[in-house]
């Protein structure tokens, strides 16, 4: 029984984190049909930005809740600058090209951004563990959990609700949904598709950076952290159905729970459990759990 509770808690913690990291990827794919392989780098840059900002702040201030504001601020700044830069400098010029070429261009960006980060921050890991230890621990089923993990969970839920609210309850969201369903028709109806694209990509970049900024206190931020998460986030959004926000949430939870179950019940499977789940889901739901409606061309 306590094992089941542990699996549920660990799985939910991991799933929430995965959702936070992956939701930007699925948003960008849904609206722009871009599989952004450099998503992991945006995450990494968010983490670096937060670690650097926290480092400066805590060098002269005692630990406090201001840390959270700094993390959010650093992530938004990094996402905004980089998102705009990449959209304007690269992705705009690939408008109308096939999905695979664009994905490949983002792979080139992955290589470039990896080295740019190496130039800025070097090989030495950046640590910013202060916020991680700020909130103390609590006990569930006799086990100690760090409260920061629950903060990330709360943030993930908040971000999810916010996206849902924007998409369904605001004019911007309705325009976005129109572009998701039919780009040409939306353009014909007078929607500024280009502006929607810029806004979406920047939002995706900010979400990735936010995921990174709140991961920074848990891990040392070092070269390669972006590459480590990118494939897992792919798995999450593919399981959920590419471009679906609820799909990303369910996919993240499924992956989180599966991984926690493997760790508690059969640890050697940890290395491929994510891929096994993905293959399993796709066997029965070839387009993921929440597929986007596709037009059948005759």
């Amino acid at each position: 029984m306590s094992t089941l509770i542990a699996i549920a808690v660990d799985g939910a913690i991991h799933g929430a984190w995965l959702f936070l990291v992956a939701v930007g990827l699925t948003l960008v794919f849904g609206v722009m049909k871009i599989l952004n392989i450099a998503h992991g780098n945006l995450y990494a840059i968010g983490a670096y930005a937060a670690a650097t900002a926290l480092g400066y702040w805590f060098a002269s201030h005692p630990p406090s809740a201001a840390a959270l504001a700094i993390q959010v601020g650093a992530a938004l700044a990094a996402g905004l600058v980089l998102g705009l830069l990449l959209e304007v400098a690269v992705l705009r010029h690939l408008h109308g090209r096939d999905e695979v070429s664009v994905a490949l261009a983002t792979y080139a960006l992955l290589l470039i951004l990896d080295d740019v980060m190496l130039m800025i921050w070097g090989t030495d890991p950046q640590s910013a563990a202060a916020p991680y230890l700020l909130l103390g621990a609590s006990r569930i089923a006799g086990m100690r959990f760090n409260n920061y993990e629950f903060l990330v969970m709360g943030l993930a839920i908040l971000v999810g609700l916010l996206i849902w609210w924007v998409l369904t309850r605001t004019g911007t969201g309705r325009r976005l949904t129109a572009v998701i369903h039919d780009r040409e028709m939306a353009a014909a109806m007078g929607i500024n598709v280009r502006a929607v694209h810029v806004a979406t990509f920047v939002a995706g970049a900010c979400l990735a950076a936010l995921g990174g900024a709140f991961t920074a206190p848990m891990i040392p931020v070092a070269p390669g952290i972006g590459a480590e998460i990118i494939v897992v986030t792919f798995a999450v959004v593919v399981i959920g159905g590419m471009g679906s926000i609820p799909g990303a949430a369910v996919g993240a939870l499924v992956v989180g729970l599966a991984r926690a179950a493997a760790v508690h019940l059969y640890p050697p499977a940890e290395v491929f459990i994510v891929y096994a789940v993905m293959a399993g889901v796709l066997c029965f739901r070839p387009n993921g759990l929440f597929p986007q409606a596709a037009v059948r061309r005759i």
Binding site: S2, T3, A6, I7, V9, D10, G11, I13, H14, W17, M143, R144, F145, E149, T215, M218, I219, G224, I225, E228, R259, A260, V263, H264, P267, P268, E270, V271
Partner: peptide
């Protein structure tokens, strides 16, 4: 108790629970 995390995974929440248990 045995745990085999993938290199570079960075998130050890579940592993730590399993070891602690």
């Amino acid at each position: 108790a045995e745990q085999w995390p993938t290199m570079g995974s960075g998130q050890y929440t579940a592993e730590i629970s399993a070891l602690a248990a």
